[in-house]
Design a protein around this nucleic acid. Structure first.
Lengths: 116, 116
DNA sequence: CTGATCTACAACCATGTAGTTGTACGTTAG
DNA sequence: CTAACGTACAACTACATGGTTGTAGATCAG
């Protein structure tokens, strides 16, 4: 299990990595099948090197990891990174819910200085 | 409520907008307080125009919206966009869980050709 | 061993992004 | 009315990013 406390740079890399359709597709694929980079590359209308770069971005973000298998590198998705991102978003929703509480406080309090 | 079906470009904009610490901070702030752009700008060590641009990025991503209030524009966070992003991530986790099912199938099946 | 395959990496180009400053315009305060 | 304020937008710089091609090192197949 991965440490759940992400610093700002890690969050940057996480969301930035997810902000590209090719990379999201790669993540979805390697979450189910561990796949070599070259097999991945066949699926996309770009060069092998371009796919390699996308994988590197995902790896720096912690969304995938590679392991050597003979001459190929098998890429596999890391669901923990996705959960960490999801937790982040949940925290924003909690901030939002806290606001509701305050509004209800305001409504519950009798209007002071209601100078309309 | 916002339409929940996001196309690829919208997802790109969503995650890209979240991939910046200043923008995440702005979102957190305006989720609780509706805040003018100039008041927001005081909080960050950059020019007013730079903050304005960040707000514009967030707006294009659907994470905030602006409403005119006299000469100022009040920015408020939209939690629906955050929920949409969270749902996206949940879908990746579901993809991952589906893989588990398949692994269990493999384990359940008697080993064929178990040539160790 | 030799050739084909998979990967890594560097160099390069085009484009987008984050920041700046400057200008212009509507709105509020006095 | 005039001055100050809040915003919008354009132009510019610096740098990151997504793509390319080319080269080189490991590893596998025959």
């Amino acid at each position: 299990m991965v440490v759940d406390q992400l610093d700002s740079d890690e969050v940057d890399r996480l969301f930035a990595a997810l902000a590209d359709p090719t990379r999201r597709d790669i993540v979805a694929r390697v979450l189910t099948h561990e796949t070599s980079v070259s097999v991945l590359a066949e699926r996309y209308a770009m060069s092998f090197a371009a796919v390699q770069k996308h994988v590197a971005v995902l790896e720096r973000a912690g969304l995938v990891s590679k392991r050597p298998h003979g001459r190929e590198r098998l890429v596999r998705g890391d669901v923990d990174a996705i959960r960490a991102a999801a937790r982040l978003l949940d925290q924003y929703e909690e901030i939002w819910r806290a606001r509701i509480g305050r509004i209800e406080d305001i409504l519950a309090a009798p209007a002071e200085g209601d100078s309309r």
